[in-house]
Amino acid sequence: MSEDWSQYHQETRFIHAGQPPDPVTGALATPISLSTTFAQHSPGTTYGGFEYSRTGNPTRKAFEQCLAASEGARFALAFASGCATTATIMAMYGPGTHILSSDDVYGGTRRLFTRMCTPNQGIEFGFVNTSDPAAVEAAFKPNTKLLWLETPTNPTLKISDIQLIAEIAHKHGVHVYVDNTFCSPYGQHPIELGADAVVHSCTKYIGGHTDVVMGVMCTSNEEIYNKVKFLQNTIGAVPSPFDCYLALRGMKTLHLRMKAHQKNALRVAQFLESHPKVDKVLYPGLPSHPQYEIARKQMKNFSGMISFYLKGGLAEARRFLEHVKLFVCAESLGAVECLLEHPGIMTHASVPEEVRAELGISDSLIRLSIGVEHIDDILRDLTGALDAI
């Protein structure tokens, strides 16, 4: 990276890092480079370091440089999805490896770990409540190589102290990777807090417009970067140039959207917390959240994700979900429009029922992704759906 972006504020990095004007035309919008292969001056001598688009692509490079600068990292690698990012990282490990993971982790991540990595790669996983440092300390084994930390967790929004957990893990010689999807690069900076790498599903807040599926890993550890870069090229789960362009365009307004998401989400969380048909609200920006003080310490933005428990069970949850008008009942999150879903039936259906029960993913749990619509319209829609119960 030719520019030292550390001297600039984050909002400026989102807009400019990795995106200089095109040297040929002066275009400000990063070009979409669709070529699959690139001419060489002579065998092994390239024009700009590009030879084959799986190995490297100009549009993807621009996105990777922007994300690295945004996360305060030296390197970034983009992938075809968040799950492709995780699967490629897991390819570094094999039989005899023990990996610790947050227990309340995204359902697709747990499915990948337990139903693909364990039977096919021989990796042992231990799931632990990472919001409890003592439980984390007790969970390490001599063969533990990695701690996969999700904070806030999906869907119960537990917060883990990244700095403290990283210190504990590093004492055991274990790397810490943080899934920062729920916070975005604007809301939380795990590498500054001691994490070795950060991953995102760019499908969510980074893209922000429900039109791209993509993932990314950021790190300042050159050894990790080189290993994952080799696997990125070897496995080939890379995003298209057009997806990179869309995600890069999403980055330009990330800070504006995250401020609007948080503003609306706090109002919604306060409304739900005072509603007689709601049993409990989980939002890091509420003082009632069990890890509120940790959230205040390490999160710049509390994001737009809220989970809450209705009074009742599946029948009440279904009635609520079926009576919204503005909210869209759909999987995914982090978009400009309001989304809601039932984790037990939808995003976490692949998690065994007994595990869901242990984690508090009950039939009455609803997850909201608060968009940037007018708050009065959002509250009116929620009021109508609650009245229908």
Score class of each variant (00 low, 15 high):
S2L: 12
D4N: 13
Q10K: 15
E11D: 07
A17P: 07
G18A: 04
P21E: 08
P21A: 08
P21N: 08
G26L: 09
G26I: 05
T36S: 06
T36R: 09
T36P: 00
A39C: 04
S42E: 01
T46E: 11
Y52G: 00
G56P: 03
R60H: 00
F63Q: 13
C66V: 00
S70N: 10
E71K: 04
F75Y: 14
A78F: 03
G82W: 05
T86S: 12
T86A: 15
A87R: 10
G96H: 14
T97H: 14
L100W: 10
V105P: 07
G107S: 05
T109E: 09
R110E: 08
F113L: 14
T118K: 05
F127D: 14
D132N: 12
D132G: 02
A135K: 11
E137Q: 13
E150V: 07
E167G: 07
E167Y: 01
H172E: 13
V174D: 08
V174F: 10
V176Q: 05
Y177V: 12
D179K: 05
F182G: 01
F182M: 14
C183M: 15
Y186D: 06
G194W: 09
V199I: 07
T203K: 11
K204F: 10
I206N: 11
I206G: 04
T210Y: 06
V212H: 01
M214R: 02
V216H: 00
V216K: 01
N221G: 01
Q232V: 03
Q232T: 01
T234S: 12
G236Y: 12
D243C: 02
D243W: 00
C244I: 05
Y245F: 15
Y245G: 15
L246D: 02
A247G: 13
G250V: 08
L254G: 02
A260G: 03
F271L: 12
L272G: 04
H275R: 08
P276M: 03
K280M: 10
L286T: 10
P287D: 11
P287W: 02
P290R: 07
Q291D: 06
R296V: 04
K300W: 06
G304R: 00
Y309Q: 15
L310M: 11
H323N: 15
V328Y: 07
V328H: 05
C329A: 13
L333V: 07
C338F: 03
C338H: 02
V355N: 03
G360R: 11
S362L: 14
L365F: 06
R367Q: 15
L368T: 14
S369Q: 09
I370Y: 05
D381F: 09
L386C: 03
